[in-house]
Simulated scan of single mutants.
Amino acid sequence: MKTKICGMKYPDNILEVGSLLPDYMGFIFWEKSARFFDGYIPNLPQSIKKVGVFVNETVENIIDKVQKNDLQAVQLHGKESVEFCLNLKTEFQNLKLVPIEIIKVFSVADDFDFSVLAPFEAVCDYFLFDTKGKLPGGNGTTFDWKVLENYPSNKPFFLSGGIGIEEMDAVNAILKTNLPVYAIDVNSRFEIEPGLKNVQLCKDALKRIDTDTN
Rank of each mutant, 00 (worst) to 15 (best):
L175W: 01
F36T: 09
F158V: 01
A183C: 14
W145N: 06
D12W: 02
N214F: 07
E31M: 14
I184H: 05
T90A: 11
I165F: 09
V17C: 08
E166R: 13
A170Q: 13
R189D: 00
E57Y: 06
N187D: 07
V59G: 09
E31T: 14
E91W: 03
N43G: 14
P11L: 02
S81A: 05
V105S: 13
G26H: 03
L15C: 11
V181E: 00
I174Y: 07
T211V: 05
I28L: 13
W30P: 14
V51C: 04
I14M: 06
M8C: 14
L159M: 13
D130T: 12
K176C: 12
N198K: 15
N198V: 02
R189N: 07
L86R: 15
K155V: 05
K134C: 00
N87Y: 01
A73G: 06
D169P: 12
V98I: 14
V171M: 07
A73E: 02
H77T: 11
V66C: 06
D185Q: 05
D210V: 12
S115F: 11
L71P: 13
K134Q: 08
Y182M: 03
K104Y: 07
Y151M: 03
G52R: 06
R208A: 10
F106T: 12
T3Y: 04
T141G: 08
G140L: 09
L95Y: 02
V108W: 01
E101S: 13
E80I: 15
N214L: 14
N139S: 09
I5C: 00
Q46W: 05
A173F: 12
S33W: 08
Y10P: 11
I102R: 13
K89I: 09
F157V: 01
N13I: 03
I41C: 07
P194C: 10
L135A: 13
L179Y: 01
L159S: 05
G39L: 04
E16K: 15
I103D: 00
C6R: 11
D113F: 07
A109L: 00
L97A: 11
E193T: 14
V66P: 05
P99W: 02
M168S: 12
I100Q: 04
G164L: 10
Y10F: 15
R189T: 02
K4G: 05
P42A: 05
